[in-house]
Design a protein around this nucleic acid. Sequence first.
DNA 1: ACTATCATACTAACATGTTAGTTGACTTAA
DNA 2: TTAAGTCAACTAACATGTTAGTATGATAGT
Lengths: 233, 233
Amino acid sequence: MIEADVSQLSELGNYSGSLSDRVYHAIRDAILSLRFAPGVVIRKAPICERLQVSRSPVADALRRLSEDGLVDIVPQSATRVSKLSLRVIREQSFLREALELAAVARAAELRSEQQLARLARNMRHQRFLVEDLDFAEFYKFDEEFHDLIFECCDISLLAPTVESVSLQVQRARLLLLPEPGRTADTVDEHDAIFAAIREQNPAAAVNAMRSHLRQLIKRLEPLERERPEMFTT
Amino acid sequence: MIEADVSQLSELGNYSGSLSDRVYHAIRDAILSLRFAPGVVIRKAPICERLQVSRSPVADALRRLSEDGLVDIVPQSATRVSKLSLRVIREQSFLREALELAAVARAAELRSEQQLARLARNMRHQRFLVEDLDFAEFYKFDEEFHDLIFECCDISLLAPTVESVSLQVQRARLLLLPEPGRTADTVDEHDAIFAAIREQNPAAAVNAMRSHLRQLIKRLEPLERERPEMFTT
DNA sequence: ACTATCATACTAACATGTTAGTTGACTTAA
DNA sequence: TTAAGTCAACTAACATGTTAGTATGATAGT
């Protein structure tokens, strides 16, 4: 029955939009970064005090997070940060893989020269940042790489959707980040995907993307044994 | 600036869960069934009066619907039922196709005899209902057919996800229902998919599923010209 | 007649008071 | 000692009052 440490919440000034939006993102970031540990109880009152807002935007934010599957609300009782579930992560990965494979196959067929140029520019940034060991910035370009592939096949509206359905995965990925050399490997995998798109070879693109995405679930499975307190039984 | 006709809302007694949940589903059903037409303005006050609830659960429900993409909220101003967008529908269909093709391929490989039996039973129901012209009931078994395929490859948690991401599609589908003979064709298409799963032939299953799903978008495109007032420009 | 400005009315967003359901501890009886 | 029953404290859910931002329409100035 451990309680979330509200001092881990960022100030609202770091976010934009309505009060509800800002509270939502502040709590969301705390959960996704594991500063709010899986399983801890979230109380509204301390959050209101910490962020200097009333209960309305906080209640609203928590309802939205419960739809994202990041918190579990027990009616009339309590709200807590949801635990990780290998089952959920596996299913979310299945969806993500299905979509990204279909996308990359089409991207390899349809990409324009301009889109290819943007991918090439993104790859240059990636290589640069990995040498610089700037992981936070690298993470942004990793996301952009996948978004650019969506743009190649005209499905950029799905980028936020696939993000919202991969939230559990995102949280789990953080536990794997410290692995040395992983980012360098990631760039190599992206490079293989990029090359296949450049050569307009859909089959190769699919294979490269598949082995890239399967790295995650492969690395994740040993984790349940290492950190059982974070997972549902 | 036409206003939604709140008398089209079902009584809350037809639903279960919290007050917010019930209000959410009542409005959602009205939108998905097109009783709330795309583009009309939704006012909170008449809804509160009609359903005999306060503004809180209504505001909550509308926020959730805006996340589903079924209503557009203009801050401090107005809320209206979102219009259909061929772009959104096309992208949602892309996601759905990617997922269902990956699922059916795996289902054809992995399905147990028991799962096959459940699919067979569902097919028998479908044929029966189509002869009876019971479209509402048929619709349920259509959905169950796809859900059963998800179960074959252990991704049943994704069923609600794919539903929530196909809401625009669902609304559009209603406009196509009156086409004569469509349900009979649907059963034939399902039968082809079922046969491929029975024979454990993934490639055939994928092809059958693809031509099944593409029926929708094919029939939808002429619709934008017929009913332009329902679509965004 | 046309445009710019301002007042008014209306809305969603936010704050806060109230209700009802759940939990867990304490008591009491077997 | 343990099991059941009761009660107090706490929670989310709901109701309602308040604030602030937006749109519309009237009016005044050109």
